[in-house]
Simulated scan of single mutants.
Amino acid sequence: MTASANAAPARPRRRLWKLRITLLVVLALLAYPVGSYVRALTYPGNASVAVRTVDWLRDIGLGGIVNTLENWWYTRHPPSTAPPATTDLPARTGAAAPANGPRPAPLPHLPGGPAGEGVWTAGARNGRHVAEYTTFVQPDPQHAGVVAGVAWLNQDLVRTQLLTGTKDPKGPGPTSVPASLRSSLVAVFNSGFKVNDSRGGVYLDRTTVAPLRNGRASVVIDDTGRVSIADWGRDAAMNPHIVAVRQNLDLVIDHGRPVPGLHDNPSGAWGSAKNQFQYTWRSGLGTDRAGNLTYVAGGGLTLDTLAAAMTEAGIQQGMELDIHSPMVTFNSYRPDLPGSRATKLLPGVPGAADRYLQPDQRDFFAVTMRGTGPANATHGPRAS
């Protein structure tokens, strides 16, 4: 037998070993992303598969691709120029019992617009005093189909607290509305961008969850449960009476006017370079001249038209909260009507009407009638 005949069987064996090594390398390279994706899909807390997938892509460094796809999609799908369908508008209620106390002024409306625009509907009451009023506005004259819901909350009658999520941001306290507060719950609504994208920090229950930054728009909650909207470092600074601060981007409304630069966002103060042009669900929070809290949200909004809706709603100091359909949530409750169901600010507001009654991956705000204990101080038991 020749030497070449002896070497011939070795070649297939070497090829087989190379193939095995290649497969092992491929499997090793796939193990981390597959494992991390499985962990993302099974991580505790309420979130859809789509939201979990997008968050995972951002977490593994593909946020630029996600932003590009979002910008391509949302900027190329403008809202309708036709009037909104009645199914897109809040149901108009019948005559309500007389109410005492402060109430918001009527809001402007487009000529020929739908009935009920700018007309306030009374919500939760404390006796004959109304704690919450809601309405809607049409802030985009070029797209008549755009509707923004508005909720006005009397801070003399309600208190607000920040609750963290199971994932972003993690922090002290419960991740759903505690059972001890549900009988007095008036409203729940979404917070801001993910902390890494918010350009700001979070402070809660004497814990710095993420460092606070000067110049950032901030929801500031004091130990009486009152909210102010501040440019951190200019309008507010840490003191013993502050129990929570949630920062998100820069102010959108300052002293009753949209801040300069909203249209082109030259410094990226309000997110990625182009997301201000996206026609998407957006939300904002502010205070009026009397210090009452006002939340605004709607679909098909750009940053400009969100600011327009906020100024129409009478906001003097205001900031953008989260954007995109899975993230925007505002649900109202009637603690004065036991057994009543939660209602959405607009019929099309994304998410379930019981969101935040179960642990959620993202932080949020809960508003309750006064007399339920210190805001962000002593939490009730976690709800399952």
Rank of each mutant, 00 (worst) to 15 (best):
372 T>W: 10
220 V>F: 08
10 A>R: 14
289 R>C: 00
339 G>W: 02
343 T>F: 02
17 W>M: 06
5 A>G: 03
283 S>T: 10
43 Y>V: 12
281 W>L: 12
371 G>S: 13
153 L>T: 11
380 G>N: 05
221 I>W: 04
51 V>D: 09
49 V>F: 13
171 G>F: 02
165 G>L: 01
147 V>M: 02
257 R>P: 11
198 S>L: 14
142 Q>D: 15
260 P>C: 10
161 Q>H: 09
176 S>Q: 03
113 G>C: 06
96 A>M: 04
67 N>D: 15
327 M>R: 14
254 D>R: 15
173 G>Q: 05
91 A>N: 03
213 R>C: 06
163 L>R: 10
294 T>I: 15
32 Y>D: 04
384 S>P: 01
151 A>W: 08
106 P>W: 05
118 G>H: 04
167 K>A: 15
319 M>Y: 10
5 A>D: 06
75 T>A: 08
27 L>N: 04
10 A>I: 11
94 G>I: 00
68 T>V: 11
10 A>W: 14
239 N>E: 10
225 G>Y: 06
258 P>D: 13
357 L>D: 01
196 N>A: 12
354 D>K: 07
167 K>D: 15
208 T>H: 09
358 Q>A: 05
361 Q>S: 09
249 L>E: 15
6 N>M: 11
202 V>W: 01
309 A>L: 09
98 P>M: 06
13 R>D: 07
222 D>G: 07
213 R>P: 06
127 G>V: 12
265 N>V: 06
369 M>W: 10
210 A>R: 07
10 A>Q: 13
225 G>V: 08
160 T>S: 14
12 P>G: 04
153 L>E: 12
297 A>I: 11
192 G>W: 01
191 S>T: 02
9 P>K: 06
202 V>S: 05
324 H>A: 11
252 V>D: 11
296 V>R: 08
189 F>L: 03
247 Q>K: 14
244 A>S: 14
51 V>S: 13
217 A>H: 11
169 P>E: 08
364 F>Y: 13
165 G>W: 01
281 W>F: 15
112 G>A: 07
136 F>H: 07
272 S>P: 00
255 H>R: 12
173 G>Y: 02
184 S>E: 05
42 T>G: 08
128 R>G: 09
42 T>Q: 13
72 W>A: 14
28 A>I: 05
182 R>W: 06
136 F>W: 06
144 A>M: 10
361 Q>R: 12
31 A>Y: 04
86 T>I: 09
383 A>C: 02
128 R>D: 14
353 A>Q: 12
361 Q>Y: 04
252 V>G: 11
251 L>M: 15
301 L>E: 06
24 L>W: 05
347 P>F: 00
320 E>F: 05
177 V>E: 02
78 P>D: 04
306 L>Y: 07
120 W>E: 05
340 S>Y: 01
73 W>R: 09
51 V>I: 09
22 T>M: 04
264 D>M: 04
383 A>L: 01
33 P>W: 01
208 T>I: 11
195 V>T: 10
272 S>I: 06
214 N>A: 11
144 A>R: 15
134 T>S: 13
122 A>F: 10
11 R>Q: 15
23 L>H: 07
288 D>M: 00
11 R>F: 15
262 L>V: 15
284 G>M: 10
332 S>Q: 12
2 T>E: 03
57 L>I: 02
24 L>H: 02
289 R>I: 02
345 L>W: 00
325 S>K: 11
162 L>Q: 09
17 W>Q: 05
77 H>D: 09
305 T>S: 13
